[in-house]
Design a protein around this nucleic acid. Sequence first.
DNA 1: ATTTTTTCTTTACGCGCGTAAAAAATATAT
DNA 2: ATATATTTTTTACGCGCGTAAAGAAAAAAT
Lengths: 344, 344
Amino acid sequence: MAETIKIRNMEEFAEASGLSRPTVSKFFNDPDSVRPATRKRIEEALKRYDYRPNIYAINQNRRLTKTIGIVVPYLSDPFFGEITRVLEAKCIEAGYSASLFSSNGSHERESKVFDTLRSMKPTGVLLAPLGRLSDQDAVASFCQDVPTVLFDSNINDVGRAFIGSDNAQFTALMVEYLYRSGEPPTFLEMKTPPNPNARKRRQGYIMAMENHGLEPFIIQIEGEGWALEDIGLQGGLHTLRSGALKTKTVLCSNDRLAIGFLAACHQEGLKVGLEDDADIRVAGQDDHPFSRYTYPPLTTIAQDYDAISRWALDTLLALVDDEKASGSRPDTLFQGRLVMRKSA
Amino acid sequence: MAETIKIRNMEEFAEASGLSRPTVSKFFNDPDSVRPATRKRIEEALKRYDYRPNIYAINQNRRLTKTIGIVVPYLSDPFFGEITRVLEAKCIEAGYSASLFSSNGSHERESKVFDTLRSMKPTGVLLAPLGRLSDQDAVASFCQDVPTVLFDSNINDVGRAFIGSDNAQFTALMVEYLYRSGEPPTFLEMKTPPNPNARKRRQGYIMAMENHGLEPFIIQIEGEGWALEDIGLQGGLHTLRSGALKTKTVLCSNDRLAIGFLAACHQEGLKVGLEDDADIRVAGQDDHPFSRYTYPPLTTIAQDYDAISRWALDTLLALVDDEKASGSRPDTLFQGRLVMRKSA
DNA sequence: ATTTTTTCTTTACGCGCGTAAAAAATATAT
DNA sequence: ATATATTTTTTACGCGCGTAAAGAAAAAAT
């Protein structure tokens, strides 16, 4: 297919296809902006010479670069891995290229990612901040420089919009279910959770319990960082051995903690489940990709990854189109869905 | 800090810091290439004016862009998530910026990533190909255009080097252990695995069994794609119910399959573990991040993520430095380490 | 066939930076 | 202090493309 002549730039390619460079340039910016016959000529020349415009030269001259930045706190967390995957696919569908970044749980990295993104002049950025660990000022100043939609983890009045889950509803739903099907749960969480959702879930728990006229009971376990399963395991062992747990039902702040807590239960020889002979019921929140393969499969609250990521991207694109339209900062919270499995 | 004057380009910044543009340019390419006094002046001006060179203009004029591409088949797989995270960090350490891409299990995507990377003129690329699903020609032609080191999944004579694990050793090690500690295993794998490592592991299994004078016994389960846990679960249920399994010991081709198979065992009411009253022993391979949290914790073969990723990057950088040095294509296989947990 | 509209070509400039060569300034060695 | 080596400045060109303006050509409408 490829001819012997090597095309070095758009000039040469235009010549080879018998057109002028501005016309070819127009084509690459929008294939439909040229006459169908012209388009066909270019596309055929494209087969013969396999030429690609230099992206750096393109982006140097654009104010917006048809790129969308995606930043997550921790890429090896399957939750973020999955949402990143979906977001990337949707960006491409929408005609943008996606640039992926992971803050790796460190605010230094997060701030450096901001610098990199600034210089990339992306159309917009989808940002899941580190949360409590973020350098709040750095996030705020970044969001002023680049159109940014926050997701997963909210920071008040920062960014142009927020997409997340209705944490209070998540917890209320689960408390309701656990209460009706047996016993109201003890709430298990990290003492210093990296993610602000945890706080909302705790509040949701307290409120839900009080609404049922029950007394909330919260256990806070030690641990720093993003190794949540291990924190759940260690904290779980400590909790179980110390006898701090007064109920036979535990609601974990999130699935990763729950996965660790399940391991602790097994290590202590406890039978987990909703059967009569079980020692303890354990539930999580998030519907982590692995929660259906735990033993027993984890009862949890499902987030709609697809809806969240679609909505986040749509929000960003709408926002960018409308220029600096509304000064409002819409928050969209998605409802969770109860997923009943065997663990509770 | 930031002055009122907005710096628009390197020209203005050079003026503001009382130097010439070429000197400033030199500084940004290597801060140590200018006199310490000059360096200090620039660094102080940098505080005052927060200027950053335009990356597109920079890269347009460089043949190599101080960028390293990282491509994995599936980002939401914690194994690749983790290795990506480590690789990214190491690239930055080495003074490169990393561009992350996921093929999302599709060769169309993979080929498009190749196109994108080609136009990015990266210093080099670390590529974990889809494997069997890859467009072999596309991979080969890409590797000719861009210095590429393959990892995880090998393709014969493609790329400048390969870093992976010694799959035969993995399996032999596990077979040896299982045999000595009880009973030689049945090997459970996908009929059409997406990854070529599977084939090597099967061969390793057969060889290991024959070395012990035992007859290999392989069960191949159905399923396509990357939802390995689900494939392990469905195939496991089928296997267990059909009575195809003749041993009480199962070695799965990888941990994700094993995680699914464990779920199948539980669903069938089997007790997994190495205790006398257990019904079945299950082992995996890879030391997947989740395998220590399964029930029972999964006995497996650990890959050294850190060593693999470090070696892959070092190999790539050495290769790029030595220009087109040796025509050899070194393959480095890392040995696995037996991780004994409770499942087998 | 003529006019109108759309599309294309030509010409020209700018983007922000790399980089080469030669001259000037500065630092180091003798 | 003078010679030598190093660093910096000046000057100048090029990278590959966006884009604007004006005229030419082609297509569509009358």
